[in-house]
């Protein structure tokens, strides 16, 4: 855990505006604590399948991937009078089969929970995309940092639709940086680091 010594690498919480520029992505290190503000989109299992199918068929996507921040999450509905329900990260490794394709389209950052496959780690570095870690189960706290939410694609999927979130001081930790730093390096790697085909 070289990169994670001292809370947030001794830098405290860093405020970051979305989308994160290439220059800023280069400067961030695994273990940095970030407070994100701006817009991001949610996508989880079924939305990923559909996005990659559209790309394979060469069809138009419902939103631009370049420079986008993709959050692996399916929010709970907003209670009356509140801008958002609870919205914490879901397990990122379920999206591993799709991530290299989306990174190649220029997605700037992915937010989820837990470690990823070797193929994803390689693809992220190759395309300059960050993997940011949200604390799984901190969903009420994270939801309280959402100022607005609206469905932008696949509304028929309910909680699995793509939602655009407007967030303010949304806390995440840099998981994999562009220099190879990895907050999960203390974990045992999967025996053969499998990457199931899409």
């Amino acid at each position: 855990m070289e990169a994670a010594k001292g809370r947030g690498n001794g830098r405290g919480e860093i405020r970051v505006k979305l989308p994160i520029s290439r220059e800023e992505r280069e400067s961030l290190r695994a273990g940095d604590l970030l407070l994100l503000s701006g817009r991001m989109v949610t996508a989880r299992d079924q939305a990923h399948r559909r996005l990659v199918e559209l790309l394979e068929r060469g069809e138009r996507l419902p939103f631009r991937l370049e420079g986008e921040t993709i959050y692996y999450a399916g929010p709970s509905p907003a209670p009356e009078g509140k801008p958002s329900g609870s919205v914490g990260p879901t397990t990122a490794s379920r999206m591993d089969p799709f991530t290299p394709r989306l990174a190649a389209e220029g997605v700037a950052a992915f937010i989820g929970k837990g470690p990823r496959s070797a193929a994803v780690r390689r693809a992220l570095r190759e395309h300059g995309s960050l993997y940011l870690v949200g604390v799984g189960g901190a969903a009420a706290l994270l939801g309280s940092r959402v100022r607005g939410i609206r469905a932008v694609a696949f509304p028929e999927l309910g909680p699995e639709a793509v939602y655009e979130l407007e967030v303010e001081d949304f806390p995440v930790i840099v998981g994999y940086d562009l220099a190879g730093g990895d907050v999960f390096s203390h974990l045992e790697r999967e025996r053969d680091d499998p990457d199931p085909p899409v």
Partner: peptide, 24 residues
């Protein structure tokens, strides 16, 4: 430790704001 403190804060926000502890 940062994550654990966030989880304690999460329990407080859930109770006070009436938001589910987890979106799942």
């Amino acid at each position: 430790r940062y994550a654990l403190k966030m989880l304690l804060e999460n329990a407080r926000v859930a109770r006070e704001e009436g938001l589910p502890l987890c979106q799942d």
